[in-house]
Structures are given as C-alpha cells and as structure tokens.
Design a protein around this nucleic acid. Structure first.
Lengths: 151, 151
DNA sequence: TGACATTTAATGTAGGTACATATATTTGCA
DNA sequence: TGCAAATATATGTACCTACATTAAATGTCA
C-alpha cells in the first residue's frame, strides 16, 4: 500500500517530506513485525541483538562499552538491557579482574540454546523484504547510505 | 558513510538483511535529528505530530480516535501524549456534548503560535534528505512502498 | 424496557530511548 | 605520593511504545 493511503494523508509537500515519513513508517512496520516474531521466545529486539553480539564474542566476555559500540542505537542503555537478560539467566555479569571498573558479560548455555531455537524457527528469513529483488535491495541500500551523508 | 562502517559490521548475510538493518538505522538517525530540532521548543516528535493534526482540524475539534487514525504509529497512546500537551496549555480537552464517551480536543492559540514559530525556524527543511535528487527520492518512496507489500 | 454488546477513552504494566548525574576505579602527572 | 582527570558502568527522570484491562456511555434488540 502506498504511504499516502497507509496514513491517510493524500498530499505531501514534496518527495523529500514523503520519503522521510515513508522511511520512519516503514522502519516502524518492520520493527513491529520483528518484535512480534521474538515475543514467543520472551525476547525483545534489543535483547536479541545483545545476545547475538555476546555469541559473537563467546567464549570471551564482552564489556558494556563493547555492546554499545556494536549496537545499532549507540545511545541506548545497554546496562539495563543486560539487567533483563541476567534476570532470565541468559547472560552472566562478573567484575572484570583486569579492570575492576569494567564488567565481563558472557552468554550462558541457556542463552546460546535460545538463539539456536530462534534461528531454527526461521524468523530471520520471513522478514518482510521478500518482495524486492536483489537489485532493488542494492538500490535501497545505496539510497539510504546516500541519504545519511552529512553536509 | 556506508552502513557497514556505521555499525562496524563488515559482512551481512545478504542484501535483504543489510537493507533491513540499514532501514532501521537510517530511520533512527533521522528521528534523532528531528527530536533534537524540536527540543528547544519543548516538544517531542509525537507531540508535534499531534499538534499538526489538531491544526489541520482547527477550529473543529478532534477526538482521540481521529488522532490515532492519522498518526504514523497507530498503536501509540494518543491519550497520554494529549495529557502532556494539555499540561503545557497547547491543547484543551472537553467532553463531546454529542457523544459523551468521546473527548473534543482542540489546539489553543498558544499551540498555533508554537507551530508557527517552529515552522519559521525552518526545521522541516533541513531534514537530512538534501543529498538525494528528486528522482532518487521518488525511487526511495517506491522501494519502501513495495517493501511493505504483504504476501 | 432492560440486559448485553459495542464504542471511546483512560489506565496499569513492562520494556525501550535520551539525557543528566552518580559511583567506583584507574591513570596521569606535579 | 597524592590528587585531579579520565574511564566504565549504573541510576534517575521524562517520555515513548506495546499490550491488556477498566470504566463509562451508547447502541441493539428480544
């Protein structure tokens, strides 16, 4: 459905305004579907992303600073997301012996097993981009990268 | 900057995964800039959007149902956003006389004046899409609309 | 007419972001 | 050595979304 119809706004000032609204709306649409997919596993999207980063480090630990560096949203509060994962016994937190300011965060066997189950469910494949061809996806990536170019 | 460099992930599974991450990242990037622009005026983005919808109705009132229908994020809680606008005296809430379940929400003169000031500041123009040509913006809109096509 | 369903908005709860501040530890350097 | 600056994380506050529930008013229909 065209964005005009999705939000019942028939006229935009220009293509730029329309593109911005379309972009934010489409990202929200994607996130909503992804969040719904993760819900049966008791995870939110940020929690899932952090678990994946931790698996990437495994069996080495990660620090909060490393998580922030790798996350999509740099300013988000990794500390509190780790709180939730710790409550669910999916990660452990121990003071880093080499630098007692830092915290070593590690994914647990339960966390690894959960990631495997989620991936086996094929959530990541049915993700909403099925209607675009390889070439269209490339175009989209190029346009988004260009859009973010700073003056 | 390419999305690979923005989030320090050199390899994606495929163009589709890259496009999804790129899309969510770019939308967040845009929203962050927009939120920063509204901050000096004491408004958040959802508050600004609701004020604009109310101005569109002015001098007629809007109901909460109408606001939800027009908003980008359909499931968001318009009621609580109106709470904040009411505290700031930018809108009024009165029980609808024709249907006492509904609430008539109206923008105040202060609300209208604030919108004018924001628009005069030119925030909506410097919005981050300056680097794309008219044709590229059209392409982007078409790709996003197609992406959201349901099976 | 009166019981029941529907509509409209508000509220409770859990989790998230953004930004400022606090606390503990380590580092650097006079 | 000792003290200030820097670092690493945690916490407080305000606001947001998502989803479920509640409360009040209205509509429906036997």
């Amino acid at each position: 459905m065209r964005i005009e119809d999705e939000i019942k706004q028939p006229i935009f000032r220009d293509q730029a305004q329309k593109a911005i609204i379309n972009l934010v709306y489409t990202a929200g649409w994607l996130q909503l579907r992804q969040a719904a997919a993760f819900k049966p596993f008791g995870l939110t999207l940020p929690q899932f992303n952090i678990l994946r980063i931790l698996r990437g480090q495994h069996p080495l630990p990660a620090t909060v600073a490393l998580l922030i560096d790798r996350m999509l949203d740099k300013t988000s509060n990794a500390s509190r997301i780790v709180d939730r994962l710790e409550e669910k016994k999916l990660v452990t937190r121990t003071v880093c012996p080499a630098n007692r300011r830092a915290v070593d965060i590690r994914i647990t066997p339960a966390g690894l097993e959960l990631l495997t189950r989620i991936e086996e469910a094929g959530l990541l494949e049915a993700n909403g981009t099925n209607h675009l061809t390889e070439d269209e996806l490339r175009q989209l990536n190029a346009l988004l990268d260009k859009l973010r170019t700073e003056a």
